[in-house]
Design a protein around this nucleic acid. Structure first.
Length: 613
DNA sequence: CTAGGGTTAG
């Protein structure tokens, strides 16, 4: 017989948790989540375990009783256990021996909780701990809190925490970590001050988690206070504290403080440097990030990931993809976030070939594709103009979230397939995913591109009436764009006047563009005035309004405006199109006829003349 | 005597 020995050290690959948990499920006790129900019907003695065949397979046995010992049935005595001859075979025959863990070993409940793989098991053990009274042991309660935190059940964790009379530092640490992870960093900080009030001594874990909470809410002053406390306590920060500290400063935008902390630490700390790279990248100090990365003697996957993500977010897509290729070449295991960033870089730069290469690479790796990664693949194809490929990937995904639906709907919207967008929205709702505000931006964009004014109005009103989504400036932007393009300028103006928030440049810009299209000088000038107030340095709007004036034959005012653009040296940004040819990305501006391969591309796309590209 | 890098994308 092939037994797995379960010991208190049963973590790790050599002791897979499955056999113990299977055994666990078959305990003679019926499964129930209800503590009261269990306490009425069962005693603490029920852990005696015999499986359905009447055999004694390896498993947990014994009682969870106040002496908190565990029995194991196994062919030989596991390390760290004392053999108890009860039930042991006479001359240590290979059949069965029953051992009891020495009392110095890890408490049973802790061992059991470590074996739990899902919430059901944890709940069941929770009930048993309550029934047996073992929950009163702080160690057990603490580990139970940790188990709930590990599977994201912060409410359960909190309710256990509140029953503990004098929680120890471990319990505080665990719950602080859980609250921060659960996006309640403020509560974490409250509990930290409670810990101090109770005269408990924070340890390295405490500092790490509290720093993380500060980092999450960009609480620099609290973070600095903590920094001072750590130094005052004479604690030697370990690498976790160190990197959390840097992270805190980085997230709060204090790159220089982060730099100083980085310099203070003598040991090589990859985690800290990774945080620093992210910090530089967030501040747009791309070269500093690169320098740090280049100087690192050891890099982990997160170091590479920070570079790829940073470049992508700075819009340096080519650089991002170069680093990504280097990462592959250096045989660094590629994690998911890196792939997501690299795909994003492909999508934003139109690098279809590389995007497809990454898609193939992902398929080759054979891991099953997560919702996030699948979504990124779809988005890449959609942005590179291959919505059909994206749709294939979409259809092949067994699980989708609201972002997945958003990506595909947005993709079809920008490809002008409004009908497909509406159909997908219906599908999404019928499959049980609630649309959010981003979905409606995509839907309204689709209406706008297809000139479907009435449908746009319908969806705009349904948004709040059916789905309880308050229209944001972005939605108003879509609607103003939709109405203005269709020449319904008065309606557009009316809609703007109903806005609660201040209209932004997108809103006025859309109105101005519509006015130019439909030659409405009065409203156009009004929109223009609002625009100049909001962004006095953009020449683009001047150009648009001067065209409007030219259309109306107001030559004199046109000249005046043109002079103003020149005199004030207003910047004129240009919309760019990106085309990948043989792995090389080419940028095109509107009416760009100076590109060295213009003729080729001109003929391929049958552009009907310069200026109309 | 149990616990610890980041949350991207539309």
């Amino acid at each position: 017989m092939n037994y797995t020995i379960i010991t208190s050290r049963c973590k790790g690959p050599q002791y897979p948790p499955e056999p113990c948990c299977d055994a666990f499920k078959e305990f003679a006790c019926p499964y129930t989540d209800d503590i009261n129900d269990l306490s009425n019907n069962c005693s603490a003695q029920m852990f005696h375990y015999i499986n359905s065949n009447g055999n004694y397979p390896i498993g947990l046995f014994g009682t969870l009783c106040r002496d908190d010992k565990i029995g194991l049935i196994c062919p030989a005595s596991p390390p760290g256990a004392e053999t108890n001859d009860v039930g042991a075979d006479s001359n240590n025959s290979p059949n069965i021996c029953i051992v009891t863990m020495a009392s110095s070993c890890v408490p049973v409940a802790v061992t059991l909780l470590q074996m739990c793989t899902d919430l059901k098991e944890i709940r069941q053990l929770h009930t048993r701990l309550v029934v047996s009274g073992l929950i009163d042991r702080r160690v057990n309660a603490g580990r139970l809190i940790a188990s709930y935190v590990a599977c994201g059940e912060i409410c359960e964790a909190l309710s256990v925490f509140h029953t503990v009379h004098h929680p120890d530092v471990f319990a505080y640490n665990t719950i602080i970590r859980g609250l921060t992870k659960d996006n309640c960093p403020h509560d974490s900080l409250l509990l930290y001050s409670e810990l101090l009030q109770r005269n408990l001594t924070p340890d390295n874990h405490t500092y790490t988690y509290v720093l993380k909470a500060c980092s999450r809410i960009k609480a620099v002053s609290e973070g600095k206070q903590l920094h001072a406390q750590i130094i005052k306590a004479g604690k030697k920060p370990d690498s976790y504290i160190h990197s959390s500290m840097i992270n805190m400063y980085v997230n709060s935008g204090e790159t220089h403080s982060a730099e100083r902390v980085l310099a203070e630490f003598s040991e090589e700390n990859v985690l800290a440097k990774n945080s620093m790279i992210t910090g530089y990248m967030n501040q747009g100090e791309v070269n500093a990030a690169r320098q740090l990365f280049d100087d690192m003697s050891t890099r982990d996957p997160a170091s590479w990931s920070a570079m790829v993500t940073g470049y992508t977010r700075s819009g340096m897509h080519t650089e991002a993809l170069v680093v990504f290729q280097e990462m592959i070449a250096s045989k660094t295991p590629v994690n998911e976030s890196t792939l997501v960033s690299a795909l994003s870089a492909c999508g934003h730069s139109g690098a279809l070939d590389q995007g497809r290469w990454i898609h193939v690479y992902i398929n080759r790796k054979g891991d099953n594709i997560s919702v996030n990664l699948g979504t990124s693949i779809i988005d890449m194809y959609a942005r590179c103009g291959c919505i059909e490929f994206g749709y294939q990937v979409f259809k092949s995904m067994p699980e989708k979230d609201v972002v997945t639906w958003g990506v595909i709907i947005h993709g079809f919207a920008t490809h002008g397939s409004a009908e497909k967008c509406f159909q997908l929205l219906d599908e999404m709702v019928s499959q049980g995913t609630q649309p959010n505000k981003v979905i409606f931006v995509a839907i309204l964009t689709a209406c706008s591109h297809a000139g479907l004014v009435d449908l746009g109005r319908l969806y705009f009103s349904q948004m709040s009436s059916l789905y309880n989504i308050r229209p944001s400036v972005q939605h108003y932007g879509c609607m103003v764009d939709l109405l203005s393009r269709a020449g319904r300028l008065v309606e557009a103006e009316e809609l703007i006047s109903t806005m609660v928030e201040e209209p932004n440049t997108v809103i006025w810009g859309a109105l101005l563009a519509g006015c130019r299209l439909h030659k409405d000088l009065r409203l156009g000038e009004y929109a223009f005035k609002q625009l100049v107030k909001l962004e006095p340095c953009s020449g683009e709007r001047f150009k648009l309004v001067s065209r409007l004036l030219a259309d109306r034959g107001e030559q004199e005012r046109v000249q005046k405006l043109r002079k103003e653009i020149r005199d004030r040296n207003l910047e004129i940004t240009q919309g760019l199109s990106l085309i990948e040819v043989d792995g090389e990305i080419h940028e095109f501006g509107a009416s760009d006829i100076d590109h060295r391969r213009y003729q080729e591309i001109y003929s391929v796309f049958k552009i009907d003349g310069p200026g109309r590209f």
